[in-house]
Nucleic acid binder design. Structure first.
Lengths: 256, 256
DNA sequence: AAGTGGTCTAGACCACACG
DNA sequence: GTGTGGTCTAGACCACTTC
């Protein structure tokens, strides 16, 4: 730890954040370690508690640290999962019985078991919300909301919308969609997928999302809307919120 | 404006943020409008100034509001630019003399002139940094750093690395790369592009990036690393930081 | 000069976690 | 109970913008 430079242009809270960041990067504090408490740092630097909190606010926003009320602040673990968009939907994976998320986690070397680590939040027939209706039409759809938990941390919320006539009579209607996931069932039902689009934005997590992903207030999330087409028809829209610090999205484009 | 509910579980600063957010969404304050000052809100809600600041902190993190020291806080304008990744590198655009960024801005209806709105930050021959060397090899490269300004706002920083033998003798070496941009010149020089990869992460802006993009402290940026291949060889790596609230990334994938 | 936001201090009450 | 972080108040000094 370096002493504070009170005469510096750099704000005190930033200097403290710099110190802690350096300690984490050099490995003085490893993943999962508890960082010094607010009162420790107040004593060490001779500053106010709010100033220490301000410093932690930065590190938390950076995804380097997380806070547990009543317990302490800890170094965030694992690096991002690389999500190979152009490979994860490959038919060969579906044939091998693997859904896309499982492919990602396996390639990232994470411990993930689709039988235990997916929570069904909602499963019903209904009308699509407005911004999904633009993509999939206004007929009745099957709505599947689920939360993916990896190594104890919720990484992703996904809500799939499938036109009822596409889903009906398949395992898409039930909690367990079977090997290869939704896309395998859609293709078995006679809709051969031709192309998939993904639209990616970065947003600050709304309150529901923030709570379900166990994120700090103000944390960014990746909002990804995927649309799968069979010919000209959209046969699935998947609305996904991902922990922004936990993923790297990887795409391959043709150079037409 | 609704009154505060002091007995609510919802923190005061969040209630104030909710109020202001609603006023912006309903259009009570439009793009570019100045919001009430801290002292206005202190008087209106009967809270401390720090609490008002905390509320603004959320709205700023959301990209809804920006702050000008000494002047006030203002409603952030324009919606995100949709960046059609699968189309923007199409050869037909290069043939038409348009670089990828120009294609995006034109499709988004933004006022942008590549002759005035690109600042060259760096243009030299050197060694690639480590994380780029992994992609492009350790030979000498041409390094081009530029900042893209749209309607007065810096939206993107991009640093291109091109192996010197690919760039030499072309307009890539000079400030103005000519119609169709770098990729047009690379292809003219005998390297036909075969594929492009893009790796996307979300990060909190480091200080240099934050200043150059005129972002608030702690703001998220999209970090996009694009690699262009001619056959097996990487002929350009472009390291890009984008204002995360200003872009929507749009991809199309084959359903192989 | 007056108004604005940026930062910092001092002190307080609360909710949550852990032993 | 004790320690932890979450929130709020009161007051202060500073830097920047505008008139």
């Amino acid at each position: 730890m370096s002493p504070l430079d009170r005469s510096s242009d750099r704000a005190i809270y930033r200097q403290i954040a710099d110190d802690l960041r350096a300690d984490i990067r050099t490995g003085a504090f490893g993943p999962g370690d508890r960082l010094p408490s607010e009162s420790d740092l107040v004593a060490r630097y001779g500053v106010n508690r709010r100033t220490v909190q301000h410093a932690f606010g930065l590190l938390i926003a950076e995804g380097l640290v997380y806070s547990e009320h009543g317990s302490g602040r800890f170094v965030q673990g694992r690096p991002p999962v690389r999500r190979l968009a152009s490979d994860r939907f490959a038919r060969r994976h579906r044939r091998a019985g693997q859904a896309a998320f499982t492919v990602d986690m396996e390639q990232a070397g994470r411990v993930y078991d689709p039988r235990n680590d997916v929570e069904m939040l909602d499963l019903r027939v209904g009308a699509p919300p407005d911004r999904i209706e633009d993509r999939i039409g206004d007929g009745p759809v099957l709505i599947r909301s689920r939360r993916y938990i990896v190594e104890g941390l919720p990484l992703q919320l996904a809500t799939s919308y499938v036109p009822l006539d596409v889903a009906e009579g398949t395992a898409i209607m039930s909690a367990d969609t079977g090997p290869g996931g939704i896309y395998a069932r859609i293709e078995e039902n006679g809709h051969r997928l031709t192309r998939i689009t993904e639209d990616v934005t970065v947003e600050v997590a709304a309150e529901g999302v923030q709570r379900l992903l166990r994120l700090p207030v103000g944390a960014p999330v990746i909002h990804l809307v995927r649309t799968a087409y069979a010919g000209e028809r959209a046969v699935e829209v998947c609305d996904t919120f991902m922990n922004a610090t936990a993923f790297e999205l990887s795409y391959e484009l043709p150079a037409r």
